[in-house]
């Protein structure tokens, strides 16, 4: 009874902490920026006005949906390829030795530099944007998966071998054991993918969130431009939270994660 109440209290406190600072900042912006004469920095009231006008219309279908689709497809491809390649690299020393120089190069190569290359080689279509997003998101996933797979406990593997867990059972076991690191890489990659989605749309697109924001800026529609920035922030936040939900479920067994949950409440 008291335990439940104290847990509810702790929950309420958690929500308070999470929302406190943003609410204060928004209020400050609202008050300080109200009646702002600077056209580049419109008031929050104007921005929110524009937000409703711009995004709750068919712009949503024309620009937000394509962006989300590109993000999902690019990120999904990076997940599949990153986990598969990372697994192979982490598992077999020979592959690792062969791949490391190339990996060392690509991990430090800023992903947007491939945009001009792709523009020439592939053109301006969706494919280019997908490749950019997938390429950038690939490395964190691949490298973390390789590390995780390589670090799977020797005794765990021996146990699996002794009980004749071979073939698929063994692959699954290794991936599961490496999953905390795979998730760490995937979380990092999600941020990268969002950035690359926006950047690629700003540089070479005729629709999408990035394109729309740039378009507003070019036409001096500053409240609208700011509302796009706001939307991107909200989008990033929501996706990060969704990711956290999935991670919490998949890693519910994991000591570090469970410890973190308990520690933060």
């Amino acid at each position: 009874m008291t335990a439940r109440r104290s847990r509810a209290l702790a929950g309420a406190r958690g929500v308070g902490y999470a929302l406190g600072l943003p609410v204060v900042l928004l209020a400050l912006w609202w008050v300080a920026g109200d009646g702002s004469a600077n056209i580049f920095l419109p008031s929050l009231r104007e921005i929110l006005d524009a937000f409703g006008r711009v995004w709750f219309s068919d712009v949503f279908v024309h620009d937000v949906v394509p962006s989300l689709w590109r993000l999902a497809a690019g990120y999904g491809a990076a997940l599949l390829a990153g986990v598969a390649a990372g697994y192979v690299i982490g598992r077999w020393a020979v592959v690792r030795a062969l791949a490391s120089p190339a990996l060392a190069y690509f991990r430090v190569l800023p992903a947007p530099v491939i945009i001009p290359v792709l523009l020439v080689a592939v053109g301006i279509g969706d494919t280019t944007k997908l490749i950019v997003i997938a390429f950038g998101a690939l490395w964190p996933i691949l490298l973390n998966t390789a590390d995780g797979v390589r670090g799977v406990d020797e005794v765990t593997l021996e146990t699996a071998a002794a009980y004749r867990l071979t073939g698929w059972a063994r692959h699954r076991l290794v991936l599961r054991a490496a999953s905390p690191q795979i998730f760490a890489g995937a979380r990092q990659a999600l941020g990268v993918a969002i950035i690359l989605m926006v950047v690629s749309e700003m540089l070479m697109s005729t629709d999408g969130l990035g394109f729309t924001v740039i378009q507003f800026q070019r036409t001096f529609a500053f409240p609208e431009m700011w509302s796009g920035v706001l939307l991107l922030g909200v989008l990033g936040f929501v996706l990060a939270k969704l990711f956290e939900l999935v991670e919490r479920y998949a890693l519910r067994w994991h000591r570090g994660l469970t410890g973190r949950q308990e520690g933060s409440s």
């Binding site: 765990t156 021996e158 146990t159 002794a162 054991a177 067994w253």
Partner: peptide
């Protein structure tokens, strides 16, 4: 290679348990 019908308890018992499986699932997996 590990023969069939071999049961084993390792000295490093903690590391030999599958961390992502419950106690029951650990016993059940083989």
């Amino acid at each position: 290679e590990p023969p069939a019908e071999l049961g084993i308890v390792f000295q490093e018992y903690g590391r030999s348990l599958f961390a992502w499986k419950t106690v029951r699932e650990n016993v059940e997996l083989p």
